[in-house]
Amino acid sequence: MRLTPDASGVFPIAPTPFNPDGSVDWTSADRLFEFYHDIGSDGITVLGIMGEAPKLEPEESVGLVKRAVAKMGGKPIIVGVSAPGFAAMRSLARQAMDLGAGGVMIAPPPSLRTDDQITGYYAQAVEAIGTDIPFVIQDYPLTLSVVMTPAVIRKIVMDNPSCVMLKHEDWPGLEKISALRKFQAEGSLRPISIVTGNGGLFLDFEMERGADGANTGYAFPELLIDVVRLQKAGQRDAAHDIFDVHLPLMRYEQQQGVGLAVRKYTLAKRGILSHDAQRKPGSALSAAAKAEVDYLLARIAKHDRRAKI
């Protein structure tokens, strides 16, 4: 299924499962994609920053796309295709779409500084991959150091009809969502899907500001689905109540350097991944950190049975 501007819901960022020897754990990959499908995800994103995409060989990247398409039952697969050069970006983007992906996600390189450089980069990227491929803008200044104002995002969207989604991951970023929706209400921005990142830390209020859903990772993606569903149903207090239960673990996952290790450790404890390994270079949790995660899980389990591991 191709990604469209009216896409909404939860598109979890899939981590890449590895064996302890650093090889891709294909069995866990299949189980992970089946899990995302079965819990009601609206799609997924593979080869994202938290998917350790730069550590993969080209054939491994293609293999993950194939498995995701096969296991997700026709739901849209977003494929991260960011690369230092446009040749590699085009190659992966075209291969992914030929395999049945729904669209691609493009992050700006950290070297971009001015508004013209940012908008010019996306124009060149679209020219390289082809105007027939739906694409997602990844706005992640905390990691990429590229600051996109609402006006810059509007120009990218309006100049490139194949842009169908914004992955909003600015922090703080609630006012940016409001500004973009105001542009849309005024008629200066065409309709576009806005899904949010930041590990879900602000999803409760992002939905209230006009986000369509989440495009991020968390060891309990069911929680993201709950919050989006409840907010869309107008059940504000219920959404905040279940969100607050998980917030301590979500916060713990957001630690720089060990966040992915926390997420993989929890997914392994849940039986979804066989190992919590990362491909080198990567971090590992100390015994003390694992004990802290276990403590947080026990506290969550008092209110959410899904955390009883």
Rank of each mutant, 00 (worst) to 15 (best):
S178R: 13
N198S: 09
L224D: 12
G63I: 04
S41A: 14
I194P: 08
L180A: 04
I225T: 03
L201Y: 02
G43L: 03
R181A: 06
V79N: 05
R154W: 11
H303S: 09
H37S: 09
R306L: 13
T16H: 00
S8E: 14
G48A: 11
D170T: 15
W171T: 14
A179W: 08
P109S: 08
D21M: 11
T266K: 01
K75S: 12
R113A: 06
A88Q: 12
G48N: 03
A123T: 03
I77V: 15
R299H: 10
G259K: 07
K55D: 12
D237L: 09
V136H: 00
Y122I: 02
G282V: 11
R31H: 10
R2K: 14
K308F: 05
L273I: 00
A70N: 06
S193G: 07
V126I: 04
P54G: 12
L267E: 09
W26C: 11
S286R: 06
P161S: 05
S61C: 15
A233M: 10
L47P: 13
K71V: 08
D139Q: 13
D212H: 12
W171F: 15
A83N: 11
W26K: 06
I177K: 00
G213H: 02
F86V: 02
A261Y: 00
R2T: 13
A101F: 00
Q255Y: 11
H303N: 02
D294A: 08
L92K: 03
M1R: 06
K176F: 10
A179F: 09
F18I: 05
L3E: 10
P58E: 10
P150L: 11
K66A: 08
Q255K: 11
M1C: 07
T45E: 12
V164F: 01
E127M: 04
L180N: 03
I177Q: 02
E292W: 06
A233P: 05
L297K: 00
R31D: 11
P58K: 02
K182V: 00
D276C: 13
S82E: 05
G48W: 04
D170R: 07
P108S: 14
A287H: 10
M72Y: 12
G40C: 05
Q256T: 14
I177S: 01
L144E: 08
G200P: 09
F243I: 01
G74K: 04
L203R: 01
G173C: 03
